[in-house]
Amino acid sequence: MKTSQGFPAGNFSTWLKQIRNTQKNNTGMDVPCGECTACCTSSFFIHIKPKEKKTINRIPKELLFPAPGLPKGNVLMGYDKNGHCPMFVNSACSIYDDRPLTCRNYDCRIFPATSINESEKEISQISQQAEKWMFDYSNENDLSNQLAIKSAAIFIKENAKLFPSGFLPLNSTQLAIFVLKIYPVFSEGKSLSDTEKIVNEIVDAV
């Protein structure tokens, strides 16, 4: 339900636990999308893993092609001339029950949570939706988690050149997910003065 201030995103720490569990175990996210279909219409290439047999069987073979740089069996599904997922039919996912893990795990709340902006023009719809999410910060733990995450995002942005070549994700979606993975390095009370030490801790945490 939309409020006068935006869309309720849920309790921050509860959401954080869920998204981190999803990143680790591919459990999927329950996102209150409402009528928003931005992620289905934003020119995404969808990665589908070999183990996703039901998904692969639901998609016409001509829509799939080998995923560059990944082992055999990993495939990508592209988008149509309008930037829409080819499985997006009549304003809905035509294979929803068997949709790819990539889709199940996607949650645009990662952007307001990390203060990382989705800046690519072709997915501006997602940016517009992400700006509307409003998290609930009901206790100090919520606030400390949020502070640690934003500190992580700022640190990575300001010190990107100190990391090994190719270590940091290149696009904003993957970078936001990366920040949610390593934010415990920036726990409350931790000194941020030793930049090199923090970089090494982040590398070790991945």
Rank of each mutant, 00 (worst) to 15 (best):
F155C: 07
E120L: 14
N21A: 11
L143E: 14
I95A: 06
G189H: 04
T22H: 03
P164H: 07
I59C: 01
P169Q: 10
P100K: 06
A153L: 07
K72D: 13
F135G: 01
S172T: 10
F88P: 00
I110P: 00
E35H: 12
L76I: 04
W133I: 01
F44Q: 08
A67N: 10
T27I: 11
G10R: 09
Q128E: 12
K53F: 07
I156P: 01
N105Y: 01
I154C: 04
C85N: 03
F135D: 04
F88L: 05
S127W: 08
A113V: 03
N90S: 14
S13W: 01
P60M: 08
N26D: 15
P164F: 05
V206N: 11
K17I: 03
R58C: 14
P169I: 08
I95N: 05
F44W: 10
K150F: 07
Q125E: 14
S187A: 15
D107A: 06
F7L: 15
I149T: 01
A152W: 02
T114H: 03
C36N: 13
P71R: 08
D98W: 07
K72N: 12
P50D: 08
L70Y: 12
D142L: 08
L101M: 12
S43K: 12
F155K: 05
P66M: 07
K81Q: 13
I110C: 02
N21R: 11
G6Y: 05
I198M: 03
S124N: 14
T102D: 07
N57R: 15
D30R: 15
I154A: 12
N117K: 11
F111I: 02
E188V: 09
Q146I: 00
D204S: 15
S43A: 15
A67E: 09
F111E: 00
G166C: 06
F167D: 08
V75E: 04
E118Q: 10
A176C: 03
L70K: 15
L63D: 07
F12D: 05
Q5W: 00
S4R: 15
I154F: 10
V89K: 13
T14K: 14
L76R: 05
I202C: 02
K17A: 13
I95D: 06
C85Q: 03
K53I: 15
F88W: 05
V179D: 02
P164R: 08
V75M: 10
A130C: 02
